[in-house]
Amino acid sequence: MDFEVIVSDALRSGIGPIAAVYALAAMGLNLHFGYTGLLNFGQVGFMLVGAYGLAVTVVTYGGAMWLGVLGGLACAVVLALLLGVPTLRLRADYLAITTIAAGETLRLFYRSSWAEPVTGGVYGLQRFANDFYDLNPIPRGSYGVWLVSFDARDLWVLTVGWGLVAVVGALLALLVHSPWGRVVRAVRDDETAARSLGKNVYAYKMQSLVLGGVIGAVAGMLQAIQVQSVSPDTFDPAVTFFLYTLLVLGGAGRILGPVVGSILFWFLLTFLDSALRQAIEAGYVSSELISTSEVGAVRFALVGLTLILLIVFRPQGLLGNRKEMMLSER
């Protein structure tokens, strides 16, 4: 077993572009769930409309990339309004039901043959982010410290991705520590009380839904840019559940919760994957017990187990405050 390879793989994944994508998407979800108490189970839907907004504008309609980015953001706003208008006046669970259905409906809609002329159907759309890579100021070559290295292309995506995480994180930190954030947290704790104190609860929930959704769309775009491709089946409902997993892991209702959660989630997932493969190859684990092709499933089972243990022993997540967390169980 080569531990250096395992750690290298895990670190690459933990700080890689995909971790930044999930951190961003989870930050939006954190605004919904951690701060406003909105049960959004369709964050992947926002990622989808963001990614497709970009891809469709550029590939199908030949627009510029910056126009595509604006298109993706606009799609997220529209989706948030469509979801929010009918459900935000209702009890919290209705939003959960609506969003989970909407996410899946969107995926099926975008992959349908009816929509194929625009969305590319099951094949999706490719090569829409050339403008982005043309902007890359990093000279060709490989850059690395210790066990990890990235090529110029990945490093560029990585820099922009974590840069976005920093900017969005700073923005959210300013927001939640403002009077606006106080109202939003009040809505999470007791909507009726907030209303009795003159706060327009519906408007705040809508603002939160739109803002968190837009952040999700940015994450979706970053993901699409990274692979220069969108395909509908990358946006399946499991993505939202991974987002919840890493949010709970890091600590919901903490600015850095999703960031720590995402890094750790991807580190662990890849670590387990790599370690299992190595162990099977080296014969420490009998291939009759787990074959290499089953590793993908087993690592998720192990991550699930980790999450269960975490919920039992540290329900507030790594950065959360247990006392505060317990108060929410009214």
């Binding site: 009040a186 007791d190 009380a193 104190l197 003159g198 609860v201 108060l327 009214r330």
Partner: peptide, 23 residues
């Protein structure tokens, strides 16, 4: 609506107290 009533200067409390637990 309730929030408009409160802004008019008519503010209520509740029989079962409604404190914002995590504030």
């Amino acid at each position: 609506p309730a929030h408009r009533v409160a802004r008019q200067g008519l503010v209520r409390t509740f029989q079962l107290t409604r404190v914002l637990a995590r504030l």
